[in-house]
């Protein structure tokens, strides 16, 4: 809790990153949940923190929100200590766990939370609309289904009109349609210049909804960049066609090709530049019947990245 005079003095947040995490470390007993996480989020960015369960995503988010301090390292939101940014109404948050408190209605709860943010909060009906719960305004929060509760918690994160919204696994327990609506609401919110940081282990959610993806595994950031870049880092795209009498060495020498595999009678090339690879294939007159070009999906990228880090490589 001891804040340095310097960080106290940096009361202004002009130009400061929305989130700045420096070498965060947090252990629970002998479990090292977070081991040196470091990243920054610029105002207006939408960033996905992606990782498997137990990677340290939630711990990082909790520290970002000032719920507990890191053992080492520092966090600032808009140049302020997290608790201070929360008190200043800069942050709206949605955490995973917890039911909602009984004996209040959805409208009362959203209205109450909005009220704590003062005049910056948008009108409550607007927030209810955004979170697709306008029809639930009069319902008691303890009488809602899991998915409805999840949308109420999402509404609570948006209710204050905060410039930074942090969502921890926001679509857990939601059906496909609710998920789609939630992401749309989130993108609308981000489009107004707000900053959004969300965690997920749904890979396509990160890909579809974030400007940038930070991959966390075993308490460390193992990749950080636009989705495209992360896929490329993990081997890019695949080019596949029927296996005939192509020379594997010749295939391996094609531009962009990293790997040549033969699977179930098909040649599968992993390439960093599928356009150049296909052009070269055609140029060399190699047979390529039933040609398929596919992006290595984030799932593959993810597996490649996490297994690389598990091997303890410095890269």
């Amino acid at each position: 809790m001891t804040k340095s005079a310097v960080s106290e003095a940096v009361a202004t947040d002009a130009g400061a990153p929305a989130v700045s995490c420096e070498d965060l470390v947090k252990s629970f007993g002998r479990v090292e949940a977070v081991r040196g996480v470091r990243f920054a989020v610029r105002p207006g960015e939408t960033v996905a923190v992606l990782g498997p369960n137990g990677a340290g995503k939630s711990t990082t988010v909790h520290m970002m929100l000032g719920l507990f301090p890191p053992d080492a390292g520092s966090i600032e939101l808009f140049g302020m200590a997290p608790e201070k940014a929360v008190r200043a109404g800069r942050v709206g948050a949605m955490l995973q766990e917890g039911q909602l408190v009984p004996r209040v209605t959805v409208g009362e709860l959203v209205g109450f939370v909005a009220g704590t943010y003062g005049s910056q909060a948008p009108a409550v009906p607007h927030t209810l609309e955004l979170a697709q719960i306008a029809d639930l305004a009069g319902r008691r929060v303890d009488k809602l289904s899991g998915g409805q509760m999840q949308r109420v918690r999402f509404a609570l994160a948006l209710a204050g009109g905060a410039r930074l919204v942090v969502l921890d696994e926001p679509t857990a327990a939601l059906d496909v349609e609710s998920r789609r609506q939630l992401w749309k609401a989130m993108r609308d919110y981000a489009a107004k210049g707000n900053t959004v940081v969300f965690t997920t282990h749904y890979l396509e959610e990160a890909d579809d909804n974030a400007d940038r993806i930070i991959v966390i595994a075993k308490g460390q950031v193992i990749a950080d960049g636009p989705a495209e870049e992360i896929k490329k880092a993990a081997g890019g795209r695949t080019v596949a066609f029927r296996h005939e009498d192509q020379d594997p060495d010749e295939l391996a020498a094609l531009p962009g090709v990293n790997e040549v595999k033969v699977l179930h009678g098909r040649v599968v090339l992993t390439t960093t530049d599928s356009d150049a690879t296909v052009a070269a294939l055609a140029g060399a007159g190699l047979p390529m019947r039933d040609l398929e070009v596919a992006g290595a999906d984030l799932e593959d990228a993810f597996v490649a990245l996490t297994s690389a880090s598990a091997e303890g490589g410095a890269g």
Binding site: L67, G89, G92, L95, G98, V101
Partner: peptide, 17 residues
């Protein structure tokens, strides 16, 4: 009970002192 439901934490994430 409120704590076990996450209510105290939710309050802590609002600007409320």
């Amino acid at each position: 009970e409120d704590r076990s439901r996450g209510w105290l934490r939710l309050l802590r994430l609002t600007p409320l002192s």
